[in-house]
């Protein structure tokens, strides 16, 4: 890797990422929210849950490629069940996440060893 390129690429890549995050927020702040029509407000409120559902679907799909679906499915299923169970018991996302990762890792080891 060309080390002399790294710094400018990192700085410009970081700037681009930052501006993508900041400029729409700045624009929305200047509008002060009041100029937005109700449908736009509803759309913005719905974006979060919608993004989480899409992120979850894509993350699970990465773990379940078609070619190895049946081999990978038991560990994924164990992880999902562990998350559901811990969430029901604790409603704490951190504990639920940890339980899911442990269950997935254990079943993965059992299957692959």
């Amino acid at each position: 890797m060309a080390n002399d390129l790294l710094l400018p690429v990192v700085l410009l890549g970081g700037l681009a990422t930052y501006l993508i995050r900041f400029l729409p927020m700045h624009a929305a702040e200047r509008l002060n929210g009041r100029a937005l029509p109700p449908w736009c407000h509803r759309f913005l409120l719905a974006l979060g849950p919608s993004a989480i559902a899409a992120l979850l679907a894509l993350a699970l799909a990465d773990l379940l490629p078609i070619a190895t679906f049946y081999a990978a499915a038991p560990a994924v299923l164990a992880g999902v069940i562990a998350v559901l169970a811990l969430y029901r018991l604790t409603t704490n996302p951190a504990w639920s996440t940890l339980a899911g990762a442990i269950a997935y890792g254990l079943i993965h080891i059992v299957i692959t060893v």
């Binding site: 719905a46 979060g48 993350a59 992880g79 639920s96 990762a101």
Partner: peptide, 30 residues
């Protein structure tokens, strides 16, 4: 192996409290 499941587990744990009958269809569509 366990670490690869951390993000899906996190997204699932975050999605669970948002699940209501009224938004199941939009979330499913997404």
């Amino acid at each position: 192996a366990g670490l690869t499941f951390v993000l899906p587990a996190l997204f699932l744990a975050l999605l669970l409290p948002l699940l209501r009958r009224v938004n199941v269809v939009p979330l499913g569509l997404s």
